[in-house]
Structure formats: structure tokens, C-alpha cells
């Protein structure tokens, strides 16, 4: 693809807005798509907020912010993305939802379009299996926050065209990010490693080995993780963690992936982490 080609980003949540920001920063035109017009507009506002933060931190100038934002157009009708060369899907983490959206994209875009699915737990091959042109799909997993984190895991489906793999690696490099190609496996490497580690920590807490603060100290000052697991889980959200764990458990059937009972109890009690004010820690704001 050339630099003039347009990229469509489907989904305006945290990942969609973050990816849209990263793509627009690389100089490409971005169509930020949500079939609900107000959500498409809200997605563009998230991009604007992220860019404004970047200006405050000195990462970009006000002029660069304006130019970047000008490249992001909110779109609420799918036929408007017909000319996109790359379509990045970042809709909710559900195989049915992702497959449905991508099938509709296939109907409006050319047969040359490259489809990226930003999945953190699902099989890229399983999603590709639902498509008319499975060879055009590839998995790209961005780390949160997507506008700043350099790593992008690139997972070809079994059906992916080798040319699509090559184009995707180049696309990610053009974003200024570091692509790592690996086999299509649930969770790719980041969640495949992190989720069972987090669950081990929760089980240690539940078994009374130590308090959340103490285990976080062991994990950071001892095991060398950048952030305590319980701080991280509170940030991610216990409900999200439970869903991610369950999705991985359903595919691996290895008990380390299964969400521990404490997670289910916390979700039932509405202790979802930072967003609800209480999780493993309490938050006053």
C-alpha cells in the first residue's frame, strides 16, 4: 500500500481510538467507524484527547496535533470505507461479533483489502474461517495504550496469504512500531503469559500466602514486573479479566487460565477495580 492509502478502524473503544491515533500519527488518512454516529464522533474526541495529552507532554506540537486530527474522519456507514486498503477491526472481543463485522466489510471493500483483527484471546484462524476470503485476514494485537506502546504482535491465520503477512509487517513498521510475528495461538504471547500469571497471584492471595500489597511487592521488586498484578488487574477491570481468562480457558482447558473464584466473587459484588472505586485496592476519586 502507498502512504496515500486510507485505513479504516472499526470500533471506537479504548483500542479502536488508540489504534486510530497511531495510524493518523503515521500520516495516513483514517476512517474511524462506528455504526452509531454519536459513538463515531465520541471516538474522534478520544483521539483528540489523546493527542492533546501528547502536546502537554511535549511529544508533538500543536500544529502536528491539528494535522493529525484532520486526518481522522468519523464514519457511521460502512459503504464509506469501500476504498480503504487496510481495515483494522477493534470491536468487542467476541468471535460472533468480530466475524459478523468482518463479513460486512468484505461485502463493501475490494478483494485486495487487508483485514486486521485486533484480538487478544481469540483464534485468528477461527475468525478467518467465517470469511469469504480468509486469506486476506491477519491478527494484529496492539498493547494498551496503542498510541504509545511499541509492540504489535502479528499472528497470521493458517489461511493468511504470505503477501498479507509481509504487507502487515511493513504496515506496523511504518507506524513506528515493532512487529513480532508469531503463530496464531489464543492470547498470543502477551496474554498467554500474563493471564495465568495473574491468576496464580489471585490464587496465592485467596490461599492467604500474603496480602495484595505484599504479593505486588514480590511481583515488582522480586520478580521484576513493572507493575503489581493487583494494581494492573484493578486498572484492566475484574470483569474484563474474568472474560479474558474464561475465553482462554475455553480454548486451553488448563486450570491456570481459569478465573479463580475470588475474581467471580469480586465481579458479583461489583468490585471491578478502578472504575468502580474498589477492587483489590480502594480508590478515592
Amino acid at each position: 500500500m502507498s502512504e496515500l492509502d486510507t485505513v479504516a478502524v472499526l470500533g471506537t473503544g479504548t483500542m479502536g481510538a488508540g489504534i486510530a491515533t497511531a495510524v493518523a500519527r503515521s500520516g495516513r488518512q483514517v476512517l474511524l467507524v462506528d455504526t452509531a454516529p454519536d459513538r463515531a464522533l465520541a471516538g474522534r474526541r478520544s483521539v483528540a484527547d489523546t493527542l492533546a495529552t501528547g502536546v502537554r507532554r511535549g511529544n508533538l506540537t500543536a500544529a502536528e496535533r491539528d494535522e493529525t486530527l484532520d486526518r481522522v474522519r468519523p464514519v457511521s456507514s460502512l459503504p464509506e470505507i469501500a476504498d480503504a486498503a487496510v481495515v483494522i477491526e477493534a470491536v468487542p472481543e467476541d468471535l460472533e461479533v468480530k466475524a459478523e463485522v468482518l463479513k460486512r466489510v468484505e461485502q463493501v471493500c475490494s478483494s485486495e483489502v487487508v483485514l486486521h483483527t485486533n484480538t487478544s484471546t481469540l483464534s485468528v484462524t477461527a475468525i478467518a474461517g467465517r470469511l469469504h476470503r480468509p486469506d486476506r485476514l491477519i491478527g494484529t494485537h496492539y498493547c494498551n495504550p496503542a498510541d504509545r506502546m511499541r509492540l504489535v504482535e502479528v499472528a497470521p491465520a493458517r489461511q493468511s496469504d504470505p503477501a498479507v503477512v509481509q504487507q502487515t509487517v511493513e504496515f506496523v513498521r511504518h507506524l513506528g512500531k515493532d512487529p513480532v510475528v508469531l503463530k496464531d495461538t489464543p492470547g498470543l504471547l502477551t496474554n498467554y503469559l500474563l493471564v495465568p500469571f495473574e491468576n496464580d497471584c489471585v490464587r496465592a492471595l485467596e490461599a492467604g500466602w500474603a496480602t495484595a500489597e505484599e504479593i505486588d511487592l514480590a511481583v515488582t521488586a522480586g520478580a521484576g514486573f513493572p507493575m503489581g498484578v493487583f494494581r494492573l488487574l484493578d486498572l484492566v477491570g475484574l470483569d474484563v479479566h474474568r472474560a479474558v481468562s474464561m475465553s482462554l480457558y475455553d480454548q486451553f482447558h488448563d486450570q491456570r487460565f481459569a478465573p479463580p473464584p475470588l475474581v467471580a466473587r469480586m465481579v458479583a459484588a461489583g468490585e471491578l477495580g478502578r472504575k468502580s472505586g474498589t477492587g483489590f485496592y480502594r480508590y478515592e476519586d
Binding site: 506502546m149 511499541r150 504482535e153 508469531l182 500474563l194
Partner: peptide
């Protein structure tokens, strides 16, 4: 690639 993912993605030193 393991070491790249764990340092860049998971933030280990």
C-alpha cells in the same frame, strides 16, 4: 521475539 515481547509488551527490564 520472546524477549522482545516481554520487554516491549509486558514492560520487563
Amino acid at each position: 521475539d520472546v524477549d522482545r515481547i516481554v520487554t516491549l509488551g509486558l514492560g520487563h527490564e
